[in-house]
Every structure is written in structure tokens, then in C-alpha cells.
């Protein structure tokens, strides 16, 4: 053991300089080469488009429920189990609230992503269906035609990767910014 201790300590120091220091700085340097729009920077609107925001008012497309109130400095999920009665009551309450705000809607039209909390609590996206079911309400509140809103949804829909892989989705922040830009 003693023969190994000194080399072990020295090797640990060398490794820490190399992997904490040089590796991190190398990645830092490489990241500086990334073009503005693909690195983690604020967009023209002054927001981080990848970080979800809370939208609960009727004039905006609502974002998904969040277990942490869209706190991007303490993100997290609900960690509720699928059979937990308190959790299921919460989902039921979300359904009821959503129906109150969107009276023209039938229950079986609501997609599950609108009544379940995301894993990070700052999910920036909703499904296309989740946007479509909110069109009537927003048209009424903003006094604009449903066709215009549907057009925005179509413009903002992000297809699966290369049209082949993954989900179809919409960034709620970008969608709402487009909505505000109408006037």
C-alpha cells in the first residue's frame, strides 16, 4: 500500500490538472466557436428559447403544468407515481380547470401533455394537438380569426428530426411571441 500511495497522490494531481483544467478549458474554447444561434444565448426577443416559461393566462397558449413553477434554478419533476390517488386527483383538477377556461372543448380532445407535469418542470414544448385545442379560446380573447392562429401554429410546428425521427412539437414561447407580433 505504501509503495502505491505516493504515486497515487501524484497521479491524482496530474489527472485533476488535466481533466478538470485542460479538458474543461478545451471544451470552453471549442464552445466559443459555435455560431450565435446554436449556442446557449438569448435570442433577439431577449429570452432563452430552450428554457420553458410559465404561461397560464387565457391570451397566451398555456404551457405544460410544472412541479416547480418553471423555476430554471431549481428544476425538477413531480415524481408522483402513476397510481398515487393525490396525484390522480390533481390531474382531474387540471382537466376541470382547463375545461372551465376552454368551454367549447370536450374532455376527450385534451391531450395528456397539457395535464401532466414535465420531467424538468421547464419543458419549452407542447404537442401540436395541445396548441390546437387552445385556438378557440385565444381567438375569442384576442378577437382574431381562428384561421390566422392556425396559420401561426402551422408555421411554428417543428417536424420530427429530418422528418423521420422523434416527436412533432411546438415551442410555446416562440408561438406566443408570434402571437404578440400579429398586431
Amino acid at each position: 500500500m505504501r509503495n502505491n500511495l505516493i504515486p497515487a497522490i501524484r497521479l491524482t494531481i496530474v489527472c485533476s490538472v488535466f481533466f478538470c483544467g485542460i479538458y474543461t478549458l478545451a471544451v470552453f474554447g471549442i464552445s466559443k466557436l459555435a455560431p450565435e444561434n446554436s449556442s446557449f444565448t438569448k435570442s433577439k426577443s431577449g429570452f432563452y428559447e430552450t428554457v420553458g416559461q410559465s404561461f397560464t393566462s387565457d391570451k397566451y397558449f398555456n404551457s405544460r403544468p410544472s412541479a416547480v413553477g418553471y423555476n430554471a434554478a431549481g428544476s425538477g419533476g413531480s415524481n408522483k407515481g402513476p397510481s398515487n390517488p393525490d396525484y390522480l386527483a390533481e390531474v382531474q383538477a387540471r382537466i376541470d380547470t382547463f375545461l372551465v377556461h376552454n368551454p367549447d372543448l370536450k374532455k376527450n380532445e385534451i391531450p395528456s401533455d397539457l395535464v401532466t407535469a414535465s420531467g424538468s418542470g421547464i419543458d419549452p414544448n407542447i404537442s401540436v394537438q395541445a396548441a390546437k385545442v387552445q385556438v378557440k379560446r385565444i381567438a375569442k380573447v384576442r378577437n382574431i380569426s381562428e384561421t390566422t392562429i392556425n396559420q401561426i401554429i402551422e408555421q411554428q410546428t417543428e417536424k420530427p428530426l429530418l422528418g423521420l425521427f422523434g416527436t412533432e412539437k411546438i415551442n410555446v414561447l416562440k408561438l406566443n411571441l408570434a402571437l404578440d407580433n400579429l398586431k
Binding site: S78, K80, P82, S112, T116, A117, S118, D123, I126
Partner: peptide, 8 residues
Amino acid sequence: SMEGKEVR
């Protein structure tokens, strides 16, 4: 099942 999952 979308509880705890991300749309993307």
C-alpha cells in the same frame, strides 16, 4: 404516459 417526460 407524459408525467415526468418531455415533449421533445
